[in-house]
Amino acid sequence: LYGLKKTGTGLIRSVESLRLDMRKWGIHYEANGSRPYFIGHEREDVVEHRKKVIDYFLAREHNYYRLTDDDEPEWIKPTSKTPVILITHDESSFRSGEISSKRWIVGDTAPFHMKGRGKTLMISDFLVAHSSGPFFRLSDQEYSKACKKYPELEDNEGVHYEKNSATASIAIGNDSYFDNETVLSQFTRLLKLLEFKTEYKQHDIEILVDNATTHSKKEYSITDFSKKIGTKCEVSSIDWLVENDQFHTLNCHFTGGEHKGKAKGMVVIGKELGLDVNDKMKVDLLREKLASHAAFKTV
C-alpha cells in the first residue's frame, strides 16, 4: 500500500507502516524541545502564597534595586531612606538523558512531562538584585577578611561551594540531599559572608527562600509508582504529616485478600488517600492528582 517491501506473510504491521499512518492522522515527529513541568505549580495553596509574595514586593518596590524594561536594561536605585538588597535563594536541578531527543506531536499541542529521570546535579545558589550580581560572591580581599574572622569557612562540611560564595552543588545519587541540616549550614555561611560585602553596607538585606517551609527529603517520588495493581513498585509505604503533626503511613502493597503482596498502583493508592481518581484516568493525570496530596509534597 505504501510501497514498502513486505518480508513476511503474517498480519503484523510494520513499524514503518504505523509511522506512515500516524503522519496521515496529523501526528508528526519532531525535536523534543522544552516543555513545562507541572506537578504542584498550580495548587491552590501555592497560587495563594505566590500572590501574597508578589503583592508584598509590589507594595515596596521603591525599596529595591530594579531594572528598566528596555532592550538594554539599566539599574534603578531605591528611593527609600533605607535601601534593600534583595537576595533570592534558588535551587535548580540539571539532568542528563531525561527525555528522548524527539517526540510524536498531535497538531500544535505538546504534552507535559515530569522530572525524575537521568543523573542529576543540584545547585543551590543566591541571586542578587543589585549591580554587583547576578550571583552573590565576595572579592578575594573580602573573602580573606571573612576567613580571618570565621576560619571554618574554609571547611566545606562535605558540600561543594563555589569560590568566595555560598553557592553549593551536589550530585544526587553520590552526595547527600539538600536537607534541613545542609541548607541551614549553607545559610549560616551566607550570613557570615554578607558581613564583609562592602557594596552592601548601609543596606537592609532581605532573602527570599526557595522551599522555606521545610527541606525534608522524600525518599520516594511520584514517578516510582505505576497505575495498575501488581505492577512493579519498590516503595513499601508512604508517610506524611497532617494537622497537629499527626503522622500517617499507607502501605503501597496489599497486606491481605486476593492481591496480597502485590503493589496497589496509583489508582488504589489515590482512592485510599481520599482523592477523586479512577482507572480510566491517564497516568499523567493520576500523578498530578496524587502529587496534590501531602504524602507526595516536599513543602
Rank of each mutant, 00 (worst) to 15 (best):
S34W: 00
D284Q: 13
E42K: 12
I76W: 06
L121Q: 12
H293C: 04
K5L: 12
D90G: 10
S139I: 04
V53R: 01
V209T: 05
Y64W: 13
R95Q: 14
L18D: 10
R103Y: 11
Q246F: 15
S100T: 12
T223N: 13
L190K: 10
D284S: 11
G261C: 12
R23I: 09
L194P: 02
L86G: 00
K77W: 05
D108R: 09
G257T: 05
R43F: 15
I123L: 15
P134S: 11
F296W: 11
T255S: 10
S34T: 01
P73E: 02
T214Q: 11
S101F: 00
D204M: 08
V47N: 04
R23V: 08
S165I: 05
G33T: 10
L184R: 08
K260I: 06
N251Y: 07
V277Y: 02
D245M: 03
R13M: 06
S17A: 15
G116S: 04
E61C: 14
R117V: 00
D55L: 06
G230Q: 06
S96E: 08
H293P: 08
P134A: 08
V235P: 00
G261K: 07
T79R: 12
T82Y: 06
E206R: 03
H89G: 14
R35A: 10
K192W: 03
